[in-house]
Nucleic acid binder design. Structure first.
Lengths: 102, 102
DNA sequence: ACACAATGTTAGTCTAGACTTACAGTAAGT
DNA sequence: ACTTACTGTAAGTCTAGACTAACATTGTGT
């Protein structure tokens, strides 16, 4: 149980995924992210810490605010993990198609 | 909080991810999958139900056994969701490189 | 120095869900 | 029909973690 892929666990929570999707529109501060969400600001701060631990976001100090943006490293890790399954999956799909056609 | 991407929640659990990774070697029955895992067989059965609900696996009856294999549909859903972030992520990365070089 | 604004952190509560045990169902062999 | 494999399901327990409230910290402006 090597427990790799912390990115998948990080993106499993709906609220955390919502935060991450909002960063798709560009970098934003904690307050900006928490503004439209139904949870408190500290909750968003904790979610951002989890996303940062999974290398999915990066933070930068800008005065008293902290600006977060998407980190490509976490995305790359997911893609690499995901690509391991494609050959097997497509092979299985081809077999199923062949079975249903005959 | 539209709660899309049930695949990410399904693959967040380490045990469930281990089951999924074992199917990469080819289709297998519930007992075969549970044999090398530190959890009981009903636990594996429940995990397979979750994976099936997320369209990550397909099951087929073979006598009294049930054979599971990887389903490409769930993988495709993850890839589609993931691809939405790449342009933004690479753009952010390029900016960071430019900042550190000057 | 003081006030304010933005965020991180801690302690504590509470719910989702991972797990086990026990039971039910179904197919194959004798 | 009976037994044996193999699996799904239900009920109950228990822990990880999502959330809030309160406090600590840091930077900015006057």
């Amino acid at each position: 149980m090597t427990n790799g892929q912390p990115q998948l666990a990080a993106l499993a929570d709906p609220t955390r995924r919502e935060v991450f999707e909002r960063l798709r529109a560009g970098e934003a501060s904690v307050g900006d992210l928490a503004r439209g969400l139904p949870v408190s600001r500290p909750a968003v701060s904790q979610h951002l810490r989890a996303l940062k631990a999974a290398h999915l976001v990066t933070d930068r100090a800008e005065g008293t605010r902290r600006v977060y943006r998407i980190d490509p490293h976490g995305l790359a890790a997911i893609r690499t993990w995901l690509d391991q399954f494609w050959e097997v999956a497509l092979q299985a799909y081809a077999q199923e198609v062949a079975r249903s056609e005959h």
